[in-house]
Amino acid sequence: MTDATADNGRVVQPETIFRRNMRNFLSSKLSVFFLFVTLGFLVMAIFAPWIAPHDPNEPDLFRRLIPPVWMEGGDWSYPLGCDALGRDILSRIIYGTRVSIFIGVVVILIATTIGVLAGLAAGYLRGWVDGVLSRLVDILLGFPYLIFAIALIAMTGPGLHNIVLAMAYREWVMPFRVVRGETLAVAGADYVEAARAIGASRSNIMLREILPNILSPVLVVSTVRMAHVIILEASLSFLGLGVQPPTASWGSMVADGRSFMLNEWWLSTFPGIAILILVLSINVVSQGLRDAFDPRFHD
């Protein structure tokens, strides 16, 4: 997919195409709605201390297992009820947003930066650089994702820092493959040849000529992968390999609530709904981006 095309001898600026794609995206009401939902979670994560009604980690055995407000025994001070230690579930969900969003954003930022740079180098320089990077990618793809992450965490121990690294080690492979393919496709384009002819350096060509033209697929792949990363983090936390207690994370909240699900169903249900809504929103946004950016996906 080359975004810069010669139109009656006049080269259309890549930024214009990117902007046109974004306008296409924003014209879909469904995508925009879910974009706002996703941004809502982002706001919740940033302003958690101001939004959350209670301290998420403060136990109080007098409030133990208070049901949601609409059930008998519910209390308006704790709208979604309290957990087995008497901690407010709503506040824990709000704080849990921080873990999911932080890991989603940081892992994708690291992975995209590495993947884009490596992909540009492999696709443009070819030769041994491409050979080495592509073989490394083949090897990393030989591991099922969750198993690779679990194996790394088993070695390094759980914790925010280790989870981010465990995921980023394999996640960069996804943008790498997209960027390498796109770079190979545009490397022979006229505008790249022109830049080379006027003596632009290789890094200049890669970063200033090629990169702006392949931003659309990078954006699409990043959003799709962010949804995956968030589910993966929740799964690791559920297994007890994620962020450690007492820090609230949605996956570990679901796990904690499991033993109470017979009677106190709200313990596991609400954090699960939070994961579902966030991941669903990101998936709809990424679908919208793909439809807007890539005409091949139109029915």
Binding site: A234, S235, G251, V254, T269, L276, V279
Partner: peptide, 22 residues
């Protein structure tokens, strides 16, 4: 299918247990 790919497996499993088993 959108829900299917967005649903965390561990949570969906718990919901199924709650409904069909419990």
């Amino acid at each position: 299918s959108l829900f299917g790919v967005s649903m965390p497996g561990f949570w969906f499993g718990i919901l199924l247990i709650l409904f069909f088993a419990v």
